[in-house]
């Protein structure tokens, strides 16, 4: 599962075991996330995608093995250090009623501030930039619960951007969004990777979405990697039949030229 050598490894899992209570979800996982690329984790329900994402974000402790962030074991880093390097957006985040976009984005500066530290111009600039990138500058005073699903999702991403970490991990960011907002979000991610040098990892449900936008795809089944690499190498009717138990044909997307799978 070698990663394109052009891009160094940002986050690596080495022999990672993950348990949920007595149940082993993931065993001896070796996974490398290339820097400044968009990596998609795909696989059926229960394949361990979200669990792996949570573990890579240091929100869960692996039972064995190690997670290396820029070559350093995350267990040796403080929660705050990790938060300065990695922003995370899990599924269905809930904000308290009445929280505004600006309030939420300000919270992204939490790992950069000490208990008594004052709000600095750098904090301000980071927030302004995050709002600008997500196109929310005009909505910053709006309460989160008054926004559409797509805008709300962008506001949470703006919070992770204000953290100014180099990596952003997203768990099913497009689920529950309509098509327009899905595309908008995928374009935002692509822009963050291409123009701002971010490393993005997203759990995606839609194989074709992953094939079209992601540069690196990791296909998972029962907590194991069945295929990893560029869309061309990973998406084939064989791998999909094996992992998703669905018969498909894979053709070339007439617009983007990426693999497009069509169920039979």
């Amino acid at each position: 599962m070698a990663v394109d050598k052009e891009f160094p490894v940002k986050i690596a899992g080495k022999g990672v075991d993950i348990d949920y209570g007595p149940r082993r979800i993931v065993e001896k996982l070796d996974l490398e996330i290339p820097e400044r690329r968009f990596t998609a984790l795909i696989g059926p329900n229960g394949s361990g995608k979200s669990t792996i994402l949570r573990t890579f974000a240091a929100l869960m402790k692996p039972s064995g093995g190690s997670i290396l962030l820029d070559g350093r074991d995350v267990m040796e880093l403080s929660t705050r250090d990790v938060a300065r390097k990695v922003g995370v957006l899990l599924q269905g985040p809930v904000a308290p009623e009445g929280l505004t976009v600006a309030d939420l984005v300000r919270l992204g500066r939490y790992p950069h501030r000490s208990i008594f530290g004052r709000w600095s111009p750098e904090d301000q600039d980071a927030c302004d930039e995050a709002l600008m990138l997500t196109g929310l500058a005009d909505l910053s005073d709006r309460a989160l619960d008054s926004l559409s699903g797509g805008q709300r999702q962008r506001a949470w991403i703006a919070m992770t951007l204000a953290q100014q970490g180099e990596a952003i991990l997203l768990d099913e960011p497009t689920t529950y969004l309509d098509l327009e907002h899905q595309i908008e979000l995928m374009n935002l991610i692509t822009r963050l990777v291409a123009k701002h040098g971010k490393t993005v990892v997203a759990v995606l449900h839609d194989i074709n979405q992953a094939a079209r936008y992601a540069e690196h795809i990791v296909m998972l089944k029962d907590g194991r990697i069945t295929a990893a690499g560029g869309p061309e190498t990973v998406i084939s009717s064989e791998t999909i039949a094996d992992v998703f138990k669905v018969k498909t044909i894979v053709i070339r997307d007439p617009v983007a030229g990426t693999p497009l799978c069509i169920p039979l």
Partner: peptide, 23 residues
């Protein structure tokens, strides 16, 4: 009074709070 900002982060829930570097 000194708890303020930490409370706002805490009110996002345990996962979001930890992902912001809060214990």
């Amino acid at each position: 009074l000194f708890l303020g900002r930490n409370l706002t982060a805490l009110s996002l829930g345990a996962d979001a709070s930890r992902s912001l570097g809060q214990n």
